[in-house]
């Protein structure tokens, strides 16, 4: 599954806005993680296939406390995926 918004700067900015509203309270404003919520600015997220990230957003992981975000329309979920794939910590090389 490919991200239809891959490479779009507008989608990344919109994704950043949605991330701040929907995700930052658990995963931190910069994806560094908070409490039990894992870091998102790490190598395996950065390199994850877009379809995998999209699947996690749609289904969540209820046992681990991550809710489903299926209530967000598909384009908004792809915008978040676009933003997540732009997160990168200082300790990992660029793709």
């Amino acid at each position: 599954m490919t991200n239809p918004l891959e490479g779009s700067e507008q989608a990344r900015l919109a994704g950043a806005k949605l991330y701040a509203r929907e995700c930052a309270s658990c995963h931190g404003p910069d994806g560094a993680g908070l409490g039990k919520a894992p870091r998102l600015n790490r190598h395996d997220v950065y390199n994850a296939p877009p379809g995998t990230l999209f699947w996690v957003l749609r289904n969540g992981s209820l046992r681990r406390g991550m809710p489903s975000f299926a209530h967000l329309p598909e384009p908004q979920r792809w915008q978040i995926v676009t933003y997540l794939r732009s997160l990168r910590s200082d300790d990992q090389p660029a793709r």
Binding site: K17, P73, P75
Partner: peptide, 11 residues
């Protein structure tokens, strides 16, 4: 349904 499915980039 929301009026738009995609989010705008600006707040």
């Amino acid at each position: 349904r929301p009026l738009a499915l995609s989010a705008r980039a600006q707040r």
